[in-house]
Design a protein around this nucleic acid. Structure first.
Length: 156
DNA sequence: GCCAACGTTGGC
DNA sequence: GCCAACGTTGGC
C-alpha cells in the first residue's frame, strides 16, 4: 500500500517530540488513545511506513514540530490491561481488547515549528482536518499535498 | 482559568 | 432509541 500521512497530537507536557527523540531507538508506543474514531484509524488505517506529523497540543503555541515514521502497525494497547495505568479499562481484556496502539520512530524535527496560527493562514491547507471547527480528533489523516506544504513551511 | 464543542454514559 | 448530565479536549 502506498505511504499515507497522519497527524498525531500530543501534549508536550506529557510526551513531546524531544521525548520521542530521546527514547530508546527513537521509538515509542503511541498508547493511551481512548476515542473510538481515533482508535479505528489506528487499528484499521495506519500502516507501517506511514508518515506522521508530530503536533503539540494544549500548549501556549500549538504547532507541528517534527516528523515520525510508523514502525509497527496496530496491536492491542497494553495500558488498557494495567490497573496502575491512567489508561486502564476494566471492560477490556486480552481476549477482547478495546484499544489499539502503534509504534512510531522519530524522524526529524522541523527546522522551525509550524504553528497552528500559521497553518490557518495557508490557503493550501484550508481543508486540513486539524483546522475544521470543533475538530478534536487526536489521530487525523493528512493529504500528501498538506504534508509537503507543512514540511516546506517548516524549512524542509 | 474559561468555555465551546464534542463524546460518553445511563436513566427512562 | 432519546436525550440530559457529565466529562474531556484544546484553543485562547
Amino acid at each position: 500500500m502506498a505511504q499515507r500521512f497522519w497527524l498525531f497530537k500530543s501534549e508536550p507536557d506529557v510526551f513531546s517530540f524531544a521525548d520521542l527523540e530521546r527514547a530508546p531507538a527513537r521509538t515509542s508506543t503511541w498508547d493511551g488513545v481512548r476515542n473510538y474514531q481515533a482508535r479505528n484509524l489506528l487499528r484499521d488505517e495506519v500502516q507501517r511506513g506511514d508518515g506522521v506529523l508530530f503536533y503539540h497540543s494544549s500548549t501556549a503555541t500549538p504547532a507541528v514540530v517534527g516528523t515520525a515514521l510508523v514502525v509497527r502497525a496496530a496491536f492491542p494497547d497494553p495500558s488498557q490491561f494495567d490497573p496502575a495505568s491512567p489508561y486502564f479499562d476494566a471492560k477490556a481484556s486480552p481476549a477482547a481488547p478495546r484499544w489499539f496502539c502503534v509504534a512510531v520512530q522519530a524522524d526529524r524535527a522541523l527546522t522551525r515549528p509550524v504553528t497552528l496560527a500559521e497553518l490557518r493562514t495557508q490557503p493550501a491547507l484550508a481543508q486540513m482536518v486539524l483546522l475544521r471547527k470543533g475538530m478534536r480528533l487526536s489521530i487525523q489523516p493528512v493529504t500528501r499535498p498538506e504534508w509537503q506544504a507543512i514540511l516546506r513551511l517548516g524549512g524542509r
